[in-house]
Each structure stands twice: as C-alpha cells, then as structure tokens.
Amino acid sequence: MKPAAIWRTAFLGALVALLEVLCLTGRIDKLTMQPPHQIIIDLLRMLSAGTLNLAILKTLANSFLAFGLAMVTGTAAALVLHRLRAVRDALDPLFATYYAIPVFAFYPLLIILFGLGDTPEIFIGFMLAVVAVIVSVLSGIDRIPRVLLKTARVHQLSTWETARRVTLPCIAPYILTGAKLALAYALIGVIGAEFIMSSSGMGYEISFAYMNFDNATMYPLILLIVLASVGINMVLGRWERLLMVRRGLA
C-alpha cells in the first residue's frame, strides 16, 4: 500500500472513530444519529433478515436498466452524431448546458405521463446518464488517429466492420469514462426519483424510515447506498486507468 493510501485510510478511520466517540458520549444524541458500529450491526441484521432485499434489488435493477439503456443509446447516438456534422453543431449548446438543468423538475411530468411506477424512475436515470455517455464517446471518436481509419479503408472494411474492429476498440477508454459517469448518474436519478415520489425502492424506504424516526433502518440503507456507489465507481475508475495506461494516455 502506498503511503498516501495509508494516510487516507487513517484519516477516514479517524473520522469514523470521532463519530463513534461523539455518539457514545452523547454529544450527538440517539435520535439524530446512531454510533457507526451500531449502523454496521443494523446493516448486517437487515441484510440477513432480508426484509428490505426486495427494495434493494428493485433499485439496483432499475439503476442498471437505466445505465444499460443509456450506454447503448448514448454510444449509438454518438456514432451517428459524429457523421452528422450539422446536427452535432446544433446539439452542442444543449450538451454544454444539459447538466445545469434540474432534470428532477421533470419528474412530476413523467409521473403523469407514465404513471407512478418503475418507468418514470428509469426514465429519469436514463435522461441523466445518456448525455454523459454521448459527450465522452464523441470526444473519444474525435481522438481516433486518422491513420487507423485510413488503414481500415485500405483494407476495404465495411462500415460495420470498421466500427467493430477499429472505432470501438479505439474509444474503449472513453466509453469507460462515460460508463463511470453514467452509472453514478443512473443511481442518482433512480434513487432521487424514489425519494421524491414512489411506492417502493431504497430511496422510498429511506424517506419512509426518516419520517418514522426509524434510525435503525435509515442509516444502514444510507450506508449501503454510499458503499455501493463508491465501490462501483472505484472499480470502474481502476479499470479506466488500466486502459489509459496501456494506451500511454495517462
């Protein structure tokens, strides 16, 4: 382990220890927060009892569905947009300002359109994620060395073969960058939507527990979401760095 990683672990450990002490001595009272060790015990008990497994599964499934849809649509859209210069130029201002728009403000409209259920949640996750994919893939395509495309033409590869053998392998690191962002956005979208208005899922369970002062359910769920999102993000980040290093880009 590198020294920086040791310091980081020590810092995070100290933070948790501080919380533990503050909670145990009663500086943070029991109604506000439980001591960290209690949260972990509650989390393990919750997972083994399986009472909320359905909600957890539903949220994760919806997030992955939104993520998958965004990856496929986003990559395809980027490949097409790259060919259509005029359309791309016209959409440029939209991409530049897209993440400034509070997408959650559209959630009520989506509920009215699709009804309260999985569809509007997945749609919000998808809407948040797809633009990140398009932008990263486009910037990847822009950076494909000309000579590779020329080689493909010399070998008379078809459009499909060029895409499969040259373009896609070449932009793999950029797709991964997009995937990292997209997964975070999909989770944010789905859980946020569940929070605002829904009848199931982790976001719903957290807000339900919050309203009932049920800290034994709320904190473990929050911890689970934090661990899941940070964990997935770290794995994808490491993979991305590996690809970049192999290409000599990092």
Partner: peptide
C-alpha cells in the same frame, strides 16, 4: 492531493439525495 483527491472523487459519485435525512 494524493491523500484526499480520491476521497473527493468518490464522494462526487454518491447520490447526495440520500444524505438528506442526515
């Protein structure tokens, strides 16, 4: 930077909406 940047990057990915009750 080496110690804290990864912490910042990771916390960027957390759906912060879940922290609202806290």
């Amino acid at each position: 930077n080496a110690v804290f940047e990864p912490v910042l990057v990771s916390s960027y990915a957390i759906p912060k909406i879940t922290l609202y009750p806290i």
